[in-house]
């Protein structure tokens, strides 16, 4: 018999304000990361609109607070695995917009030489082993990266980003089982945006909630407002500290809605499948919090926005001028 009293319980961490001292120390960095991610993805949206992008792009506009909040607590050497909706994770990990644009535009200067594209942007040195085109598939890899860190004694941790769609992939829970058993330094971050591709997730997901499932593995399941970067960061910081000190995994479910569809251009074949409404904006929320704390977030935003807009425009211009890959590279990198 399982003694339910000894099991971790689900925690809800919503609506709290971030302390002024924390906002002062980290607010600017969070704001910059989120604004960079937002502008980067808005540019992609515009490129798509103009027919200048090939392939499929999945935007994470509205979800920036999870990427910024989690990754701001990582250090060099930590690794993340990401999802098909991963641009913000990469930006938050410090990947350069120019080389990300180049990759997504299929240029030789892209992080993967144009062989990965939007769904496979990766850079190991900066701590991202990559986005992934298969829902949930990066999760066991993050567990394995955690095992490597554990065995090599690096003190690094791994973060497995996944979405609510992945919550119904068996391999996610197989990984959580391993992580709990082996006390792997890995943090599971499930971004619940309410839609599994085009289907409302609650229509295809049994049980009281995704984070609740973690409790069955003896792992803390925490639900946090995914539009509140301070709240996400606080939860992630605790989870990362515990993982680093050998206490094993935490399962964090962040809730925020994606502003865009499953992918750009879907209007051409998908009808209306969700209501149009105004979404909560994590950037506006942070600005307001900083303003309320007397840190003049609005003014800071003006400055950051101008700087990041300039960076994104310059990065895109350079990427667009970058050479296409040599055709011979299509035959390279199959084997070592």
């Amino acid at each position: 018999m399982i003694d339910r009293r000894t099991l971790p319980s689900r925690k809800e961490q919503n609506g709290q304000m971030t302390e002024k001292v924390v906002l002062k120390e980290r607010g600017e960095s969070w704001l910059r990361t989120m604004v960079r991610g937002r502008l980067f993805e808005q540019s992609l949206g515009e490129l798509y609109e103009r027919g200048e992008l090939v392939g499929v792009v999945h935007l994470s506009i509205g979800l920036e607070a999870t990427a910024a909040g989690v990754c701001s607590n990582l250090r060099k050497g930590d690794q993340i695995t990401s999802t098909h909706r991963g641009h913000n994770h990469m930006i938050a990990r410090g990947l350069e917009p120019e080389r990300m644009f180049a990759e997504i535009l299929g240029r030789s200067t892209g992080y993967c030489g144009g062989k990965g594209g939007s769904m496979h942007v990766a850079n190991f040195e900066l701590g991202s082993v990559g986005a992934n085109g298969i829902v949930g598939a990066g999760v066991p890899m993050a567990a394995g990266l955690g095992v490597a860190a554990q065995k090599l004694g690096t003190g690094n941790v791994a973060v497995a980003f996944c979405g609510d769609g992945a919550a119904n992939q068996g391999v996610v829970w197989e990984s959580l089982n391993l992580a709990a058993l082996w006390k792997i330094p890995v943090i599971f971050v499930c971004e619940n945006n309410g839609f599994s591709e085009f289907t409302p997730t609650d229509r295809v997901t049994a049980g009281p909630g995704i984070a609740d499932r973690a409790i069955g593995y003896g792992v803390s399941g925490v639900v946090v407002d995914g539009t509140n970067v301070g709240a996400v960061s606080a939860v992630a910081e605790g989870a990362i500290d515990r993982a680093r000190s050998g206490e094993g995994p935490t399962f964090i479910e962040t809730r925020a809605e994606r502003w865009r569809g499953h992918h750009e251009g879907e209007e051409s074949y998908v009808g209306t499948y969700r209501e149009t409404k105004e979404f909560k904006d994590p950037i506006v929320q942070l600005i307001q919090e900083m303003d309320a704390a007397g840190l003049d977030g609005s003014l800071l935003y003006e400055k950051i926005h101008a700087e990041e807009k300039d960076l994104i425009e310059r990065s895109l211009a350079v990427a667009q001028q970058a050479p296409l890959p040599e055709l011979s590279t299509a035959l390279e990198d199959v084997f070592s």
């Binding site: 690794q79 695995t81 190991f124 082993v129 598939a137 999760v139 066991p140 890899m141 993050a142 567990a143 394995g144 990266l145 955690g146 095992v147 490597a148 860190a149 065995k151 090599l152 791994a158 391999v171 197989e174 990984s175 391993l178």
Partner: peptide, 9 residues
């Protein structure tokens, strides 16, 4: 999958 990640790591 964990072995894939461990190998990368």
């Amino acid at each position: 999958g964990a072995a894939v990640g461990a190998a990368i790591g």
